[in-house]
Amino acid sequence: MKYVILKKNKLDEFIVNLSKQKKVMAPVSKGYNNYAFEEVTRGGQIALKYIPTILPPKKYFMPQYETVVEYDTKDGKQNMEAIVEYDEMILFGVHTCDLAGIQSLNVVFSDRPKDLNYIIRKNKIILIGLECNDYCDEHASCKLVNNELPNGGYDLFFTDLGDFFLVHVNTWEGENLISLTKVFEPADDIHMKKREKLRAKKREIFKNEVKINPDQIPDLFDRSHNSKVWYKLGERCLSCGNCTNVCPTCHCFDVEDEINLDLKTGKRIRIWDSCQHESFAKVAGGENFRRKAAGRQRHRYFRKFKYPVDKFSRYFCTGCGRCSRTCMADIRLKETLDDLIKESI
């Protein structure tokens, strides 16, 4: 376990230094209490205190529009060339919920058949985490899924302790950044004790946000398949797909061919899709497996709290609260869970 510290007044130097080596992406303010990961070159551009960004950092791991194949059918050929689009970059200031989101995506895309585009891109991204000292807002449910503290998945991890950051060096890549930038100092006992104090305070602040023992959630969902809760959600849902687009673990996509005007060459792209759209489960012949919004909302929740537990032994809800925050119809994840619990008693 290696720890170093970065004095706050050296943050700018650190970011300037990093941005000379690679693209640096960090949370910046977009106004109206909205934030987004964008490229930065100075420390001052970064919003150190931010609520989860509109889109999670998954946009760098699986871009919204991604070319996967280029094809050529000239002269009767059937040539297809696999394409991997990637950018080397450093993500700074990733909260623990979003680190958990990236870990979930890693699990999905490493499962067979492996998604090489994702895996190659992931290996080009360096992750610098940032601890939350307090709740971002009332929508977060990070304690429910144990994401209020870091669970790995980063190269460096920053904890803001007043006039300095305590930095956990987790990987060789992280160590490399420390020695390259030359702005860090060794951490000693006083620094570590300050973090202990913060963690003790966090234990007081972060309490399970939903009245259920997390171990019992899959069981709750087992019993809730035909719950009235889903029908009520269905009436309220706009089917706009905002909840899945902003979710750090939703990863469904559509694949389209974009042909060139010569009608012979073109590319195959993948685009984010959403199970909340009415067209998502529509198949040839016009049949639709999830015709009603109720079934679509139920599917979304089961994809967070039931199916991934069966398949990967982890919740695919990271507690970030984005789905609740972005929903115009006020569909709130914590409320939905509360309603399911109330109904099942």
Binding site: K30, A36, T53, I54, L55, K59, Q64, L238, S239, C240, G241, N242, N245, V246, W272, S274, H277, E278, S279, T326
Partner: peptide, 11 residues
């Protein structure tokens, strides 16, 4: 689908 779907992708 609603314009929101694309708007969100554009953050």
């Amino acid at each position: 689908k609603a314009v929101c779907a694309e708007c969100k992708l554009n953050e």
